[in-house]
Simulated assay, not measured.
Amino acid sequence: MHMNVAPYLLTEDRAEYERVLDDALSTAHTRPELAGFGTWLTAAQLRAMAVNATALITTAAASEYAHFTKVREAGRVAVATRVPARQDGSGAGIVAILTVMVPVLAGSAAVIFLLVGAVLRAVAPGLRFGGTLLTAGLVFGALAAAGLVCAGAGLLVTALRNSPAATVTSAAAAGGPEDELARAREAWRHALLERGIVPFLRDALAATEPPDQQGP
């Protein structure tokens, strides 16, 4: 169960905060200001203290976090507005309807012609009209098969165009908003680490340092 969550720290960023905290703890032995790490306070104890003090620690990087969330929200709005724009052309809708209807109509006609032609061929073998109907049925059957292939290809192209990967690629090609978001996230992470988490860990170690470690 998570304890304090800063009022401005969104739930979706809680995991990112804890990742920065874990990175700080994993490299604490390389920081002179965190001397005593693991001696009188373990990594687990320090982590629990930092998780409980989330609201206090994250205020040190409030401005960077506000910029990060603003850039992220702008990117989401931009992606959302690009999707309806693809539906503006009426020509595309007509083509889609025809792509679906042609195989259905052609398939129905093929079934009717083949059935009637087969019945006439069986009842009156000498009647040429039965053969004509069978030929027409085969032609419509081929047309239905070709329509199904075209419809399948159209659905595949549409699915690929609307996939998340295609959206990200289009966004990157349009001017690199993903790069701006990455920079904003990294700026927040750096401020959170250097101005929030590390000073908190330093103060926690200093406050719990045994008296005999401070000299006579």
Rank of each mutant, 00 (worst) to 15 (best):
S170Y: 07
L138H: 04
A122W: 00
A124L: 12
L127K: 04
R195H: 14
S26A: 15
A171V: 04
T39Q: 02
D88L: 03
A50F: 03
A55M: 02
K70W: 10
P211Y: 10
R19C: 05
L138P: 00
A142Q: 07
D212P: 06
T54G: 06
V95Q: 13
R128C: 12
L41Q: 09
T169C: 04
V119Y: 11
Q213V: 13
P125G: 14
F129G: 13
A207I: 02
F68T: 06
D13V: 06
G215L: 07
V111K: 00
F200M: 09
A187Y: 03
R31D: 09
A92D: 13
V104F: 07
V102E: 07
V95S: 15
L181N: 05
E33F: 01
L138D: 05
W188A: 07
L192R: 08
I57Q: 01
G154S: 08
V71Y: 06
G196L: 05
N4D: 14
A24T: 03
P103S: 13
A206E: 11
V83C: 04
L205W: 04
P84Q: 04
D23M: 03
V139I: 14
V123Q: 12
L143G: 10
D23V: 06
E194N: 11
G176S: 11
A28Y: 00
S26F: 02
A74W: 00
V95L: 14
A144E: 01
F113A: 15
V5E: 08
V168T: 15
A174G: 15
R76M: 12
E12S: 12
T27C: 01
P125S: 10
H29E: 04
A187K: 04
A43H: 02
V5H: 06
V79P: 01
G126E: 06
E64M: 10
E178N: 14
